[in-house]
């Protein structure tokens, strides 16, 4: 029962924060991806950095259970699937989580996104044996690996570097990148659209 309670509390918080950072608004996703407003990218980079520093720092202090880590397998299909997801994300402006939040916030197009998503997931369930047979789901570079070797974790490291220290260093890198990134990368057009 505790786990259900945690699901409710963490889910409520995640949904609310996605709304407040603008991630469930296709306009902000679009502006990030067409490089005209990188505020959301800054939020995401900062979040990854903060999450990483707290998690690995907590592990080093013995406050965070290393066993809670869950590392996914690396295989060629991860990249191909990423390409597909990226293309759809750009068109729709939603990814699976933000689509759910957007639909709940009254966006009707997000309902169509979810319907398409359920059909896409079902299509994958049916075609899964073909992908499996293709070898594109076979693990590469050790499969479930972290960049360094995290003490006490059940995952191998791609390198022998101490994974927790490396995690904090990379986390600080994400934070620095969030600050360094400019507001926009594509210059404003000569004749900007008048504000509505």
């Amino acid at each position: 029962m505790t786990s259900i309670l945690l699901a409710i509390v963490l889910g409520l918080a995640f949904g609310a924060v996605l709304d407040r950072v603008g991630a469930s608004n296709p306009t902000y996703i679009g502006k990030m991806l067409n490089l005209t407003n990188l505020n959301l990218a800054k939020s995401i980079l900062l979040a990854i950095g903060v999450g990483s520093i707290l998690m690995f720092g907590g592990q080093m202090l013995g406050l965070v259970d290393v066993g809670h880590m869950s590392v996914k397998t690396a295989y060629v299909g991860v990249f191909v699937g990423g390409l597909l997801l990226g293309a759809g994300w750009a068109v729709a402006g939603y990814c699976p989580g933000t689509g759910v939040v957007a639909a709940a916030s009254g966006r009707k197009d997000a309902l169509f996104f979810i319907a398409g998503g359920l059909l896409g997931a079902a299509a994958y369930m049916v075609t899964y044996p073909n992908w499996k047979a293709s070898g594109m789901l076979d693990k590469i570079w050790g499969g479930k690996v972290t960049l360094g070797t995290v003490p006490g974790a059940k995952y191998e490291g791609l390198t022998a570097l101490p994974g927790d220290v490396l995690g904090i260093v990379i986390g600080l890198g994400f934070v620095a990148l969030a600050f360094a990134l400019p507001e926009r990368l594509v210059p404003e057009r000569a004749a900007p659209q008048p504000a509505e």
């Binding site: 191909v80 597909l84 997801l85 759809g88 994300w89 068109v91 996104f113 359920l118 997931a121």
Partner: peptide, 16 residues
């Protein structure tokens, strides 16, 4: 949005 959703979830499941 519907087509985007299809491609996003197909891709997400392929990627895991």
């Amino acid at each position: 949005a519907f087509l985007g959703g299809f491609v996003v979830l197909y891709g997400a499941r392929l990627a895991g």
